[in-house]
Design a binder for these strands. Structure first.
Length: 550
RNA sequence: GGACCCGUAGCCUAGCUUGGAUAGGGCGUGGGCCUCCUAAGCCCAAGGUCGCGGGUUCAAAUCCCGCCGGGUCCGCCA
């Protein structure tokens, strides 16, 4: 709805979109008078007044005013009424800007050599939230986890698995990482074992059956555990795509042929791409002297496949992939292919330094989930009216919500230092604050039904300033969804939902709903129900369960 | 050495792409609010050289240059 209002304002003014912004002083504010002031050598105020003199409020534009050179626009009562009615009418479907397209999102893609740690889940949560928001926008989204099954670390894990076996009583990813850590230690002490690792990698790439069986066992065990963790976090993938597939299905050969035909390959024993013209110091090797391929080769092949099947493809990658990510994009461009859009996120580190799976220096996602759950359980215990089963369910939802929200609310480019004290703190400004606001809405509506007068009828003319502010916020849902789709910043949506919850609590404070009489009661019930729908749909987009009581 | 990212009150963070109206929030601190729709809530107060120095501009947290501090990356590894 807010998108419609913005379009009307833009049409009225007939100026470039960048001069019209959201503002604390108005629903939309225009700064074009400042720009014109310079050219025309007149005061912004004067110009703004002149512009406004030719404008007449109509439809969704209820009021136009000039202050200090700004042209301020306010929505009309009709806008407020249409907003609430649209929300109540569309219900679960509310909030979509209704755009179209085919999108692939690749995220998480952690090496299958152990459990996901708290750095990996930053990737998962950003990727999954982006997926949910893009689906909401109307796009057809497919998600993939790219399984690096051909890497050195998998060969090391496989060798460790073969030599020492694993503890079958443990969650499989946690059992696998023990073999990985142990084998790494072994390698440090006996460097001559390197040869075995290399042999194993070559045999796997060449299709040796025994090697394939071994790698498959190891990778599947790790993935089994990883999938369970992702399930707990409400993170969903449509497919797990194995890197080795691209060697076996011919895409690797095709991409090498394309590179060759474009004259990009320097064959000097190894096959090399020289990117110095683009400012890269080092050359990129895509085929070793021994004929085997490298990670980047298979990744190029993967992106050739993406080009053939999608209009838009997005990768969520850690900051350590920035250089290789940009090289990948540039090579694809040189081939005349579309490069992926990449969302880079900075590292999650521990107070004592960065994490390392190899050294066993990490906090696993499973451990974090359990600890946060225990903490949430303590708080829920205080609610005597709830049944034990319900308490556990609520604690689970609150824990996962807090966890997801903590990661998604921070802009991806910010480095994070993990802090147990903060992770286990359920104070406001987190998911539980939003869940709580949603539960409050539900509670009011439940009571309205019990007392037999649940009729809803929103009236623009009855709106107080706080109600007006809340409804304008509710109208921005699809506007914010569209922003996230364009800018790939899921934290913007988290921030939006927090603002809605905040505005609702302001409203809740001094607008009695159930005690109000007749038309005022119906009016406010409509606002509560619309807020409930927005909070519920919004929490859904963040992968957080909207609880009806807590 | 080169490249990229971050630097906003004691702590965390929004705003920076597209420069404009008193720099929003939260935690923590001090004070207040449950005969009233869930106090996982609300209100009030104190707390800021927007890392530092230049520049562009009528206007800079936002753009440009330099510096400082932190992180990351620069393998015929992934």
């Amino acid at each position: 709805m807010f998108l419609k209002f913005k379009r009307e304002v833009l049409k009225m003014l007939n100026v470039d979109e960048r001069y019209v912004k959201e503002s604390d002083h108005a629903d939309l504010a225009c700064t074009v008078a400042f720009k014109l002031a310079k050219e025309q050598k007149r005061s912004p105020q004067e110009i703004a007044e002149e512009i406004v003199a030719g404008l007449e409020p109509r439809d969704y534009v209820g009021c136009i005013e000039v202050v200090n050179g700004y042209i301020n626009f306010f929505v009309s009562e009709e806008f407020l009424e249409d907003t609430i009615n649209l929300i109540l009418d569309e219900d679960y479907d509310y909030g979509s800007p209704k755009i179209k397209g085919e999108v692939l999102i690749e995220h998480t893609s952690a090496n299958p050599d152990g459990p996901l740690h708290i750095g990996h889940i930053r990737n998962s949560i950003i990727g999954d939230t982006l997926t949910r928001i893009m689906k909401k926008a109307g796009l057809n989204v497919r998600t993939q986890y790219y399984v690096n099954d051909m890497g050195r670390q998998i060969a090391i894990t496989a060798l460790g698995y073969k030599r020492f076996g694993i503890d079958r009583t443990k969650k499989p990813d946690h059992a696998i990482v023990e073999a990985y850590i142990k084998m790494n230690k072994e390698l440090e002490e006996n460097p001559e074992l390197e040869k075995e690792v290399e042999d194993l990698m070559i045999r796997y790439e060449r299709g040796d059956e025994e090697a394939i069986k071994l790698f498959k066992d190891v990778v599947e065990l790790a993935l089994e555990g990883i999938k369970e963790t992702l399930r707990k976090l409400n993170v969903q993938h449509d497919e797990f795509v194995w890197e080795s597939e691209f060697v076996r299905n011919g895409y690797v050969d095709r991409i090498l042929k394309m590179l060759d035909e474009k004259g990009l390959l320097k064959k000097d024993g190894a096959w090399i791409i020289d990117l110095s013209d683009l400012g890269y110091e080092k050359e990129v090797v895509v085929r070793r002297e021994n004929g085997t391929t490298l990670y980047v080769t298979r990744d190029l092949a993967y992106h050739l496949w993406k080009n053939e099947n999608f209009e838009r493809f997005i990768n969520v990658l850690g900051a350590d992939h920035k250089l290789v990510g940009r090289q990948l994009q540039d090579i694809l461009r040189l081939l005349g292919l579309k490069p992926p859009e990449i969302v880079f996120f900075e590292f999650v580190s521990l107070p004592e330094g960065s994490m390392s799976t190899r050294k066993g220096k990490f906090i696993s996602a499973d451990e974090l989930i359990e600890k946060v759950y225990e903490e949430a359980k303590k708080i829920v215990e205080g609610r005597e009216e709830l049944k034990e089963e319900e308490k556990e369910h609520i604690a689970r939802a609150v824990a996962i919500g807090a966890l997801r929200f903590d990661f998604v609310k921070i802009a991806p480019e910010k480095p994070m230092v993990f802090d147990w004290r903060k992770a286990l703190d359920f104070e406001r400004q987190t998911a539980s604050y939003i869940q709580y606001s949603h539960a409050r809405c539900c509670s009011i509506l439940r009571k309205a039904v019990e007392s037999g007068m649940p009729d809803l009828d929103f009236r623009g003319d009855l709106c107080t300033p706080l109600e007006r502010k809340l409804v304008v916020l509710l109208s921005k849902f699809s506007y914010v969804v569209l922003r996230v789709v364009n800018e790939l910043k899921p934290n913007v949506f988290a921030d939006y939902l927090l603002k809605v919850a905040n505005a609702f609590n302001d409203f809740y404070r001094d607008h009695p709903v159930l005690k109000a009489e007749s038309e005022l009661r119906m009016h406010r019930l409509a606002i509560v129900d619309a807020t409930r729908i927005v909070l519920r749909n919004g929490l859904e987009l963040l992968g957080i369960e909207p609880l009806e009581r807590m």
